[in-house]
Structure formats: C-alpha cells, structure tokens
Nucleic acid binder design. Sequence first.
DNA 1: ACCGGGCCTACACTT
DNA 2: TAGGCCCGGT
Length: 782
Amino acid sequence: MPLPDHASAAARTVIAAAAPDGRPSGIPAAPAASAPDGRFGGGQAPAVAAPPPDYLARLNSEQREAVETVDGPLLVLAGAGTGKTRVLTTRFAHILMMRRAFPNQVLAVTFTNKAAREMRERVAAILGHPAEGLWLGTFHALCARMLRRHAEYVGLTNSFTILDTDDQMRLLKQVMDAAGVDQKRWPAQGLMAIIQRWKDRGLTPARVTPQEDSDYANNRARSLYEAYQSRLKDLNTADFGDLLLHTTEILRTQPNVLAQYHRAFRYILVDEYQDTNTVQYLWLRLLAQEHKNICCVGDDDQSIYSWRGAEVENILRFEKDFPGARIVRLESNYRSTKPILAAAAGLIAKNEGRLGKTLRAGRNDADGERVKVVSLWDSEEEARMVGDAIEAAHREKFRLSEMAILVRAGFQTRAFEERLIVLGVPYKVVGGLKFYERAEIRDAMAYMRILHQPSDDLAFERIVNTPRRGIGDGALQQMHIVARDQSIPLAVAADKLAQTDAFRPKPRSALRELFEGFNRWRATMAKEGHVVAVATMLDECGYTEMWKQDKSAEAPGRLENLKELVRAIGEFETLAGFLDHVALVTENDEKSEADRVSLMTLHAAKGLEFDLVFLPGWEEGLFPHQRALDEGGTKSLEEERRLAYVGITRGRKRVVISHAANRRIYANWSAAIPSRFLDELPEDAVEREGSSSMQRQRMASAPSVFSNGPLTAARKPRVIEAGAWEVQERPARKDAMTVGTRVFHQKFGYGRVTRVDDDRLDVDFEKTGSKRVLDRFVERAQ
DNA sequence: ACCGGGCCTACACTT
DNA sequence: TAGGCCCGGT
C-alpha cells in the first residue's frame, strides 16, 4: 500500500504522457455529472443527488464551510483537536462525491505515512469502498513517485535508490576525505546540516550563491556540496532531501512536465501546512498555480519543525501568493476538558506573533480535572511517580493504550521503560530504535540493494566483508582505484580483480563465489520471485550462517528479525517497491492494537491523542532545551513553548506534568530548575503538588534511612530544608545569599556562591564544580 | 586481517 | 554512562 509504483493503473494513465518507461499517455477527461458510473458509487445511485449528505450533517458550521468551499485557494487555520483531519478527509470525499474530479486527480499531501494511511481509510469509509489510484502520501513518497518518472532530467535513471541517513553520512565522509578536509576540525555532521538546510530551501549547488557559502572549512561548503551531489548521481542514488529538491527542480525547469501535472491534478489538499519548508512550498506552489484549487490546513501554534527548515511564514504568505484566498478558522475543540484547554491556551498566549486563534471547548461534558503539576526530588522518583500513576489510572478506568508519556528528548524514555518493566506494565516506544536501522537488517538490505542494482557502491562496501571474506583495507583500496580509473561500479571492479591474481587466494575465491552467487540469485529472482531469491541469497552468501555461529545473546533475535524481514518483502510485488518502502517509512507509522502505554517524543506525538498524558522533565535546560536557550533567543524559545502546547493538547481527560529537582546527565547528578513554562500555566487550571516522599522530607529534620532502600539512601541524602518543595508559593527567604556565601547543598555538598540572579544561584561546588541551583535548595554553611 | 583497549564526545526533535 | 573511532599488538 505504501508505495506508489505499482499502485494502480488509473494513477499511471494520468501521468505517463512522457514517462521514460514508455507507458501510454492519457489524461482522463473531467468527470461530468453524467460521468460513467461504476467509477464512484460502484453502480449505485449518484450520491450527488442527495442533499445534504449525512457526512456533511455531522460537521459544525466552520468545518462545513471548509469542506464545501471546494474551488479556489483556501486556508484552514485549525487549532488542536478541532477536527482538522475530519475536515480534510471529508473534503476529499466531498470532491469525489460531487464529481468534481476522479480520485486520481486529487493530490493529497501529509507529513507522515500514518496520516496518509488514516486519510486513505477515512475517505474510503465515506465513499463506502476503497479509493484506488490516489495521489495521497507524504511529500517524500509522492516526490519519489514523480521522480521515478522524470529521473533523467536530473541525471538519474528510474531505478535510482534512496539513501538512508547512515549511507548519507558515509558518502559525505568519503567526499570530505577525497577533498582533504580535516574531519576533526570540521565534523561531517556540520556539513550535512548545512547541505540539508540548502536542500530545504530548494537550493541546488548551482543556486547557492557564493555569498551564501558558509564559512565551513574555509568557504568550501558549497564546493563540497557540489562534489557530494555529483557522487550521488554517479551512484544513481538520491538522499531524502533530493527527492524534493530534484522534483522541484524538474517542475521549475521543465514546462512540459509541469504542464502534465497541471492537467493531472485539479485539486490539492495539504495537511500540517505550518510544517512545510521552502522547497515543499515551492513544489506546492508550482503544482497549484494553474487551477489554484489548493486547500492548506495548518496551525501556527503547532509549528515545531523550524529546525528542519519549516517556515511558519508559509502560512502568512498564502494570501499573497493566492490572492482572494478564503480563510476558515476552526476553533471548537472536541478533544480535551476545559482545564486542559485553559492550561494550553494560557501557555501559548505567552507567544507573540501568532495568527490569533482561540480554542473553545466544544463539548458539553468538558468540565474535568485540573492539570496536575508534580514536583519531585529526582528523575528516579519521577519515573516511580509516573509508573504508580499509570497503575492507579489503569485500576480506575483508563486503558493502557489510552495513556502516553511524552518526553522532550529521546533518551528520556529509558528511565520510564526501566520503571515500567519493573512494574510489569506493557509499553511501546514509538519511534525509538527502528527495525530498519538494526545492523542485521541493514546488512541484509545491502545485499538486496546489490541484487537490485549492482552499481550500489555503498551497499557493496558494507557487505563485501560481511560475513568475513578476508577482505581488508588493502583489498578495498585496490577496488576503489580500479573503479575510479575505469569509471565502473565498485562491485564490477571487485569482480574484475577477482579474475586476476591481485588478491590472495582466500579473498579471491570468496569473491568469485560471491559474484557467481549474485548471478544465480538474479536468475532465481526472475524465475521464482524476489522472496525466494532473497531467502536463498541470505542463506547461500553465508550471512544467516554468520549469526548462527554467533554465540552472543542477541544472535537469536537477529535471526528472528531476518525472518521477519523476508516475510515483509512478501507484501510487496517487487524488490524495488520494497526498497522504496523501507527508505520512506518509519517505525512511527506502525500501528499496533495491543493495550500498551506509549512512550515517545513530543514531536512524534503530534497528531495523536490520549485520555491520559504524562509530560515529565519540565526543567530549564531540558524543556525548554538548552540549545534552544543558547542559540535562538525568543524565536526558538517560542518553538519550545509551542511544543509544550502540543504536549498538553494531546490529553483528553487528564494531564500530569512533572519536574525533578535533580537529574542525571551523562555520569553525574546535576541540579535542575523548574521549567519557566510551569510558571506560565494559569493557576486556576492547574493543581500543584509535591510527591509523597516530598511531604515526608518536608517534615523530616534528619536524614531518612528508610526513604528508598539502603543503597539509594546512602548515596543520596534526602533531607532538605522545610518548605523547600513548595513550588507554588515561594517561601520568603530567611536570609538572602550573596556572592561569596559559603553554602551547603544536599546533593552537591559545600560550595561558594559566584552569582546571584533573583532566586537562582551559581555555586562553585567543591566536589562537582559550578552549577546553577535554586536558593531554596541550599542552606548557609557554618 | 582482525581484535581489543583507551580516548573522546554526546543527550534534541525527523521525512 | 555508552558508543564510535583510532591505534597498536598479534
């Protein structure tokens, strides 16, 4: 389903006019009211005759306006939980029901595969039958599909492969090596970021002006970018950014191709418009400029991808680019209780430069619990609190699958995982370690890529000595030299060298065997299909044997994964289709019915909703993230705040926010100041409390031996000054600390104050160095 | 060719 | 703490 290429005959006929593969051209005529039936209703009575269809009756007036304004540019500003997806899918179905277009004449773009799948299902539900041949997918998937048909315009063939992040980095490092760049001084990651930003803005190397060249590696970023692109072309590959960059470049420079798509797409629908970057925006504008039937749905308050090049300004530009555009605001929230909405609204109100939307509670039963803000001693206690609250809620009424822990950064999930394992609570980490990123899967994929395209040098390099064939750096270098001199793929060079006496006997015969194998497996693929071919290949090349011999604990699991991989291939008609799928799909998209608690980042949570949401780690430096504080001033701080807004608005019934006073970073503990966002929540929407151990500590005046088992207690003295945990009303300070005051902190010991900023102190601790702490957590030392 | 020890850096977010 | 990378020994 995910992929395009073999999607449907209907889709093909639209586009194939000048397709390199020589498929017949043909643009279907616009369906008239008397269009042949069977197309839409499967022979049933024409839906157009029945006013008002019940799918419209279920909408409120704002939503209905957004659905029924079919022609001309339309911008839908949709707050969180206001039925954005419903509007989009209903609109899609409405266009089809009104017979304004065939299914394949609507272009619908989403950011995630999950959103695409959901839209596809819901459109089918309204239509009453599956919609075939849709141009519905992520920007990247749609671009890949388009690029396959016009690849020759950018120097690729239609069998180009899509590189993953790992391969991108390896290739870039090779390019940098060749250019003699010192990668100690100029890390490849930095250059990759620069290149990606250029691609986000639709800049091919030729379009990067010398003034825009970054000072990276003495103004060499641009020329390195050029070399990198040229290597990609040599290898007949495209990286992620290229999918959009190349496609947009073709639309920009090939009027005949653009005209084809103008004829093909009468209506364009865009989801999550606030997250589009410049190149995506250009792509959309080019495709929409003919009919101008473009509908963009977005929420400036949920724009959280500026680091990926997203431009909220695209929303503001919409009216300029499409004069006379209608704007519809969706403001009735049907998802969350009043206190949750109030908390979210109060927080986001601190941002400036918003388009201005207010969320209204759309439900009658929307009264509910206040948002809970819990203060805890350290991150371990925070994990315990969340675990206990999950168990309690489960006993109460909530299903595990209706609970989620949403964190700022990926590594934070670990503490909660460990806790949930102890408690025996089933959970899943969404977007955590990805199946397709595991070593054994990537190895197997590399074998498949070579099977599909022998010129895939990166894949060949990966597996040439896996399993061990006695090929080391020396042999590899010889191959590279031959390949470069004769301008042939690495695998071909290796094949040639294996016919000579260039290598020692062992690697020579191993290589010969490998190439004979590839020939044989290709024949198998032609005769018996790609599933058999891959299974045979993995066995005969010695790869599965390698893991069978491996005595490590993970080996059996890896073999299981390989079986699963072969099974997954079977779901695709061709190996090429599968390879595209893997390149474009992420684990995030996977759905599972099991009753499990979800753990994920706030970014991954966008678009999802849960009855009960935990938002831990609201501490300065973590959330808002330190890098946001360091670099971008108010702009990136506001993005952090939007992220907080996204988090709160995920919850339907209950939201629990927490922060810990001490957190382990790398090896050691450091003090953490509660996030400023906590102070920004409106008081009447929240309920603040310390944990129970906090209460105990407040009363205790001596170290508690029993607080948490002997070891923990010994390591972490748990006594703190009375009142220290009252986050809500700050107790008056007995005696203000001044620079030079010698202080004692329960966790960091003795130190001297070096700076005072209201209630925040910089203290140079004798044992752990300089830290910033709240004055409530230290006491004056004698 | 391959293994293992020591050093360094990193823990943003993702199609 | 942990994973990646460089280097030296076998």
